[in-house]
């Protein structure tokens, strides 16, 4: 079970996408308002976690499917711009997985990977929410100034969630897994 390729759609990956999307979709209901039409969604942290565990493609699909599920069940309308935004955040949070020496299951990581999780999380939030903002301006026809307020609100809220919730959980899993894999062969 040691696949590191991102395009390897094993059964495990299929199930991970499904259950991850259910988790992200369900937890997407919970949040609190921070600005005009802008929520802090603690669920975003799960994109960071599943990205680190299973890679960028899984992150992308969990973001997309999960967001569409939240939208369909809660409001009846799919906000495609924001759904693709979630997908992009998931994609970026999976890039750390592609390091050969980073493995959550074995608990192996270095300090640079922590910075990578943060930096990719930051870029992901800016790119993903930037995409959603542009989509709302050009496709939906929302005013630019209003969307700018939404953009900054959403970016700051999501970066805070990734830093305060996503990263600590990934680190905690790494430490737990490290403890159970530090056996050495006696010679």
């Amino acid at each position: 079970m040691n696949q590191k390729s991102i395009f390897n759609f094993s059964t495990l990956v299929v199930v991970a996408i499904g259950i991850g999307a259910a988790l992200y979709g369900f937890l997407g209901f919970f949040g609190f308002t921070v600005g005009p039409q802008t929520w802090v969604k603690p669920a975003i942290a799960f994109l960071t976690i599943f990205g680190a565990l299973f890679g960028p493609i899984v992150g992308l699909l969990i973001g997309l499917i999960g967001h569409v599920i939240t939208d369909l069940i809660s409001g009846g309308i799919v906000w495609w711009g924001w759904a693709f935004g979630s997908a992009l955040i998931g994609l970026f949070s999976g890039f750390v997985f592609m390091n050969k020496d980073f493995n959550v299951k074995a608990g192996s990581y270095a300090k640079k990977h922590i910075y990578q999780i943060l930096i990719y999380g930051l870029i992901g939030c800016i790119v993903g929410i930037g995409e959603a903002t542009l989509f709302d301006i050009f496709i939906m026809g929302e005013p630019v100034d209003k969307m700018a307020v939404q953009f900054w609100g959403a970016v700051l809220a999501n970066i805070a969630t990734v830093t305060v919730l996503g990263l600590p959980i990934v680190l905690a899993i790494l430490r737990v897994n490290k403890k159970s894999s530090n056996l050495t062969i006696e010679k």
Partner: peptide, 23 residues
């Protein structure tokens, strides 16, 4: 849509009630 992704979507819908009760 490739059937593996379609199946993942299916799993997602099927497991929402389970995740809800877990929660």
């Amino acid at each position: 849509i490739p059937y593996k992704i379609a199946y993942a979507v299916n799993i997602a819908f099927r497991y929402i009630p389970d995740i809800q009760s877990e929660f």
